[in-house]
Write a protein that binds this DNA or RNA. Structure first.
Lengths: 217, 217
DNA sequence: AATAGTATAAAACAAATGTTTTAAAGTCAA
DNA sequence: TTGACTTTAAAACATTTGTTTTATACTATT
């Protein structure tokens, strides 16, 4: 119960960095231990094996991410548009905010795109609650919309935010590092909110709604 | 110059499957060769080493993907909304169409999210030309819009399409396999087109355009 | 048929990997 | 201090890895 030098923590932190950078297979326990300043046997002593260490790392990353940007408890009567605005901002912050160690997001993303044994817990503890919040907002806004359409709209909203995180390397290669950096949490949140609210503004209640005809150049 | 049993091709195909499923580090040349029915030395004989085989696999996957769903040569005078509709449909097909081996997309995606040495060529040969097409369409639609806003809109459009591919495992875990399967290329294309055209319909020429207020339930 | 070049096969190699073992050092209560 | 316990250190282990070597079969040209 003493403070102990927590080789424990150092290991978890080093593992997060290495796993995020190189993936599960690419990371070696030797590199992790070296970075943590711990003997190779440390991984098997504190955690049971490499896989257990990985799972704990992913869970810690997600916990840290959601705790840093919690979803607010809106007072009753808050207009759903305001809630949506808040949601997009928080979600963008979780994806793009700079003031946290970058490996948290990388690890989260890696697990989302290429699920491993840690994914089920991640969905249960993090993804599903977040999805429920967005679902409730959209249901409040469009109670008559069929479920699958509301679902598609939810995916469109989070898809926009996730894009900048998931494909940040491509964005950087495509538009250059300088321009890519301008797509920070705030700008993305503002754009996604405006874009999505505009899309939802003409309520897509009927499936075959005639789309806006473009103005000739 | 004879037909030869192309262990060459079999190797490339097997490598695609294994690399897509397990990633570069996770894949072993032994499993690849076994699946291809080729001796272990085959990888180093036909390709120089594992890395070269991987790069060739990624390039083949991208080539196959873009060739199967090429972007049409629109006749002059085609309205840009029509072009956008076509673009979203083709892009969705590239991401989600079922009638191609799934490993092409997985490999492409893997490279996008976690770039390796093959990424630069991928961006040059595939991503950049595709991005240029979308950029031209949006420029035709909104010539007065500032570049960075147009860029954000382009990212919003492809971001929606990419979401379903990149996070398909999460979508499946979240809404169940049955519902997840309904988000096929056609449905996604229709939704993304409608969503995006609606978003762009009220032309966001001025940054602070007042948004449509949601109708109270 | 002889031969040169190509393709496949089996075995071997050196390096790296996750894990375990063994031992030493430290910690703290009795 | 003794003794039980936890933590760190070093070495060793058994596999697995990508790659190379060596040898054998095949193919087509002379």
């Amino acid at each position: 119960m003493t403070t102990k030098d927590d080789a424990d923590r150092r290991l978890l932190d080093a593992a997060g960095q290495v796993f995020a950078a190189k993936g599960y297979e690419g990371a070696t326990v030797r590199e992790i231990c070296e970075r943590a300043g711990v003997n190779v046997a440390g991984v098997n002593y504190y955690f049971r094996d490499k896989e257990r260490l990985y799972i704990e790392t992913v869970k810690a990353a997600c916990r840290h991410q959601t705790e840093q940007f919690p979803i607010p408890d809106w007072p009753p009567g808050t207009p759903p548009e305001q809630k949506l605005r808040d949601f997009v901002r928080i979600f963008s912050q979780r994806m793009l905010s700079e003031n946290q160690a970058p490996w948290h997001r990388q690890l989260f993303l890696r697990e989302m795109a290429q699920p491993t044994s840690a994914c089920a817990e991640l969905v249960r503890d993090t993804v599903r609650p977040t999805a429920a919040v967005l679902g409730a907002i959209l249901e409040e806004m469009f109670p008559e919309l069929p479920d699958h359409k509301r679902l598609a709209c939810a995916f469109s909203i989070v898809g926009q935010c996730l894009f900048y995180r998931a494909f940040q390397p491509i964005v950087t290669l495509l538009v250059g590092e300088e321009t890519a950096r301008t797509f920070n949490a705030q700008l993305v949140a503002e754009h996604v909110t405006a874009f999505s609210l505009a899309a939802l503004g003409a309520p897509p209640k009927s499936a075959k709604r005639k789309r806006v005809s473009g103005r000739p150049k």
